Amino acid sequence: MTRENTLETRGETFFLNLRFMLIVTVFVGNAIEPLISRMDGMHSLYLWIFSFHMPLFVLVTGYFARKSLTGSAGRKVLLQIAMQYLIFQSLYSALDVSLFHVSNIHHSFFAPYLLLWFLASHACWRLLMLGMGKWSRAAQITFAVAAGVAVGYLQLDGVWFSISRTFVYLPFFVIGYHFSFSTFAKWVQRYVKIAAAAFSVLIFALLAVLGSGFPMGWLYGSMTYMQLGAGEWYAGLYRLAVYALQITASLAFLGWVPYQVSRMTDWGRRTLYVFLLHGFIVRLAAISGVYAYIGNAAGTALLLLCAILSTVLLAQPGVKRLLHPIVEPSVDWMITLQRTALRRTP
C-alpha cells in the first residue's frame, strides 16, 4: 500500500470515528433539550455540544462529499437526498399530527422539519460547490464566510428552504471539502491532541460559568439577525465572533477523536440511520412524560446512557438491513427513466 493510500485510509478512519462521536452528541443534545431550562448542568452540556457539533458534522460531510460531488455519482447522491427528504418530511409531519401533537411547527415541504434541515442544506452545499468549482480555494472560503454573514441581514424567516443554515454552515462544508488529513496528522500528534482535549474541557467549564445568558439562537444558525434581536448594521460582527467560537471549540474537540480503527469506526459508516431515525425516539420520550421524573443527577445520567446506547443500537447492521429501503431509497429507477427519456428526445 502506498503512503498516499495509507494516509487516505487513516483519514477515512479518523473521520468515521469523528462522525460517530458527533452523532452521539446530536442524540444527546436533542435528548436533554427539555431539561436545559431547569437544570444548569444540562444547559452547560447543551451549550458546549452546540458550540462544535453541527460545524464539525458539516465539515465531515464536506470531507466525504469530494468523492461523489460530480458526474453520475454526484447526481445519484442529490437524487437520494431528495428522496430521503420527501420520505422523512412526510413521516415526521404525519406523526406530528397523528401521534406527537407538536405545535408551532411549519408542516410544509418548503420548511424542513427540525433535523431535516440538514438534508435540504446538504443538497444546496453540493450545488454551491459545483457552482464554485472553478474558483480558487481561498475564493470559495471567502465567499462562504461572506455569505454566512450576509444571510443574517435578510428580512425573512430563516427556516424557509433552510436558507439561513445553508449559508451559515457553508464555510464548514467548504473547509471539510478541502481538508488535508496529511497536514492535520503531521501537526496534531499525541501531545497536541491531549492539549486540545484539555482545552475542550476548559471551554465546557467557561461556558458553564459564563454562558448562562448566551442566546442559543446564534449557535443554531437558523435565525436572522432581526429574529435574534440584533438589528444593528454591525450585527454581522457577532456572526464572525460565533464563527471564532465554533472553530475554536471544533478544533479542541478533535483532540478527543482516535486515529485507530475500532467498532466505533464501523458504527460511523451508518450514522445516517441514527440521524434520520433518532427523532422518533426523542419525540416518543417527550410525549411519554418521562422528563417529568428527571430532576437529579441519577436521572440525567440514565438519560445520557440511554441516548448513547440508542445511538449504538441504531448504528447496527441489522437496522440498516431492515430499514435500508426507507433511509437509503434506491434511485436507480429515476436514473433509468431519465436515460430513457433522453434517448427518446429528438
Rank of each mutant, 00 (worst) to 15 (best):
329 P>G: 04
303 L>G: 12
341 A>Y: 12
73 A>Y: 08
186 K>S: 14
134 K>P: 05
39 M>H: 14
285 A>H: 08
262 S>W: 10
245 L>Q: 03
188 V>P: 03
305 L>A: 15
269 R>Y: 09
51 S>C: 08
170 L>T: 00
169 Y>Q: 03
96 D>Q: 10
155 Q>L: 07
35 L>P: 05
169 Y>V: 04
209 V>R: 15
141 I>N: 01
80 Q>A: 08
55 P>L: 05
19 R>H: 11
219 L>P: 01
266 D>F: 14
260 Q>Y: 14
271 T>F: 03
128 L>S: 04
327 V>K: 01
131 G>Q: 03
107 H>Y: 10
168 V>E: 00
51 S>M: 04
275 F>P: 01
287 I>K: 07
69 L>Q: 09
20 F>T: 04
225 Y>N: 01
68 S>K: 15
274 V>Q: 02
109 F>D: 01
305 L>F: 12
206 L>G: 11
123 A>F: 08
200 S>G: 06
184 F>T: 04
243 Y>I: 03
113 Y>R: 06
210 L>R: 13
38 R>Y: 09
117 W>E: 00
184 F>R: 02
32 I>S: 02
187 W>E: 07
68 S>G: 14
68 S>H: 15
277 L>S: 07
223 M>D: 10
18 L>C: 12
162 S>C: 04
150 A>D: 00
240 L>W: 01
46 Y>A: 08
268 G>Y: 00
270 R>C: 06
182 S>P: 05
170 L>M: 05
256 W>N: 13
254 L>G: 01
236 G>L: 02
317 P>L: 06
29 G>V: 02
201 V>D: 10
186 K>C: 12
240 L>F: 09
338 Q>P: 07
293 Y>G: 07
31 A>L: 09
66 R>L: 09
178 H>M: 06
159 V>H: 02
250 S>A: 13
21 M>V: 06
260 Q>E: 15
106 H>T: 14
70 T>K: 13
339 R>D: 12
312 V>T: 07
304 L>Y: 04
208 A>G: 09
201 V>R: 10
75 R>A: 15
333 W>Q: 10
209 V>G: 07
242 V>I: 15
342 L>R: 11
70 T>I: 14
216 M>P: 05
22 L>A: 01
183 T>V: 12
330 S>I: 14
75 R>M: 15
123 A>L: 07
101 H>F: 13
332 D>V: 11
272 L>H: 04
209 V>I: 12
76 K>A: 14
116 L>I: 03
306 C>Q: 09
324 H>M: 08
17 N>A: 07
177 Y>M: 00
320 K>W: 05
149 V>M: 01
105 I>R: 15
111 A>V: 15
309 L>Y: 12
211 G>I: 05
214 F>T: 04
140 Q>S: 12
144 A>D: 00
257 V>M: 14
11 G>D: 03
47 L>P: 00
147 A>C: 04
71 G>S: 12
23 I>R: 02
42 M>P: 05
239 R>W: 02
31 A>P: 01
271 T>C: 11
